[in-house]
Design a protein around this nucleic acid. Sequence first.
DNA 1: CTTAGGG
DNA 2: CCCTAAG
Length: 627
Amino acid sequence: MEANEADIEGSVFPVTNTLGALEKEIADPIVYQLVRVDGDGRLVPATQDEIMVVEDLLEDDKCEPKLVPDTRQTTESCKTEGCLMERNPFQAPEESFSGKLEYENPKVVAEKSNASVDKVPDLEKMGAPEKVTVHGSAPCSELSNIDLSGRTEISFNSEDALNEDTPSTSASSSWKPDFSKLEGKICLDNLTVKELQETFKATFGRETSVKDKQWLKRRITMGLTNSCDFSCTTFIIRDNLVVRKGEEQISHPVKVRISADPEVGVANSDSGGSLGDRDNRVNDDANFSGTDVPSSAFESCNVTKDLYAEQGTAKRVRKPTKRYIEELSEIEETSEKLPSSYKVSRYRFPCTESLMRPTTNVRSNARPLFTRQDSLGGSGVQIPFVSRIRRSRPRENFTSLLKLQPSDMDMATRQVRSVFDASGPQEDDKRNNDLIKTSSTPGWTKQPLIAACEKDEHYSGMRIVELENDMNEDNSDDNVELNDGFEDNSDDNVISVPTPKGGMRRKHHRPWTIDEVVKLVEGVARYGAGRWSEIKRLAFASCPYRTSVDLKDKWRNLLKASFVQLPAEKGMLNSRKQASVPIPAPILSRVRELADMQGQFQPILSTGKSSGHSSGRSVHEARSGYL
DNA sequence: CTTAGGG
DNA sequence: CCCTAAG
């Protein structure tokens, strides 16, 4: 089957091109076009008139209310471009446009691709001017075959076709959906597998042997939904019920949005969040491919997510990340979407504003939760409005910190933070409880907030100075250690302080001491860059405040610094007026060496390394020894 | 949880 | 330093 593999990969689907998409072909080999399926199953390129008709229909947001197979139709594939392109980002042009259509051996092809044009219309006789080939991964290429209602003539050379050995055209060519079997109101949930299979047949016109209830329900729902666009049939799907149109009014005021709207049916291909979701679904369908190709294929590329959202079977739409929400909210907030009073009251920084609100006022969670409809992933999820008050995560020992913290100003600052946190969107974190608890501490009223902030700035500034001095005296080790101890107790509150400009600044990011840097470098030398948890455990056991991530970050910075400053090595030693802790040149050069080595042979350097750790020279020797 | 990388 | 996505 080797040779066939190649064929499979390059399996193509001839489709007639009438939309003049030729220009796009080079860039996007996948082209969608309008075709009409004739009564006898031939693909007929749509005429200009037909295109216009279709366009009109699309504009009207309706489709013809009949289910006759030979009616004009559009291949709705155009809606799924995003999916296709994602699934098929790289196309080999020479494959796509070989001119010769490779359908001589459709069955072989179909064995793997699961979708092939079994009965290929006489394209060449039809003289289709531009034969556009769509090829690539099966699920999407199937799409070219699929018509929403199953009205299409092209059959699927799937296992079904192969096994049943039925002429591919016989089963489906004259079939049309038989909704008469769907009496009035059907709750798919209540149906047995067998009944579901019946319904499936009624819906798709073909048997299915699938026993998975969920799957069947989904297929049926999909089939009904998409094939009819609701406006074509008397049924709609609501809450997993197939109900007659008109009856749905009594159910819920919520409108079911289905792909009758061209915008809705397609998962917004430009929405970043939709990608993962779509992928998931595709993967999921892969499990079924070969069993029931058409519907699954269709579903994998064009799904009405609203429907999914309403069904319990829905794959959960990926929740937008907090950052996404925040950033979006920020944008919308600045664009005056919220009542200004509301905005100000919770968005402004306390220090720049003389807000002296009682806590109860602020943290009253009765605050309306503003939400917006977001098209993320085409799911129409509700995204709350959030202000980005702070990013850093609260300490888990937040309350205890309060107790330990003797400083008034810190208290004040914290309380302000608490208030703001509490005023944020209701979060499910446990931290929220803590914060609320904290903020309801009695006695909190008016505090000189601005003074507090300023003091804080000074404070943190002084810390750095202090540290620098420590380093300048050569016996830094002891002092630094003491320092660490001190900071440990009093400065563990990693709190970001909004600067007047609106940015956030760490209140107490702990500067790296030379000692720590040395330890880090040592660790890297010993265990290799990347083994941060190891290094942390073994070399930084005494520094609980340094996480492995910190180590990694610091190493990254060191690398950067070392490469930058290696040429000016000498100058570094003298310059003591660095804003941040200056890294001694030897260490930097050592970092460089290590980086050099790590780049070449990573973790193999663990032998006699530790002995010569105090100077770059010894490292150099060791390294040359290895080389 | 750890690692890697972007912010 | 923070955050997040991947293992």
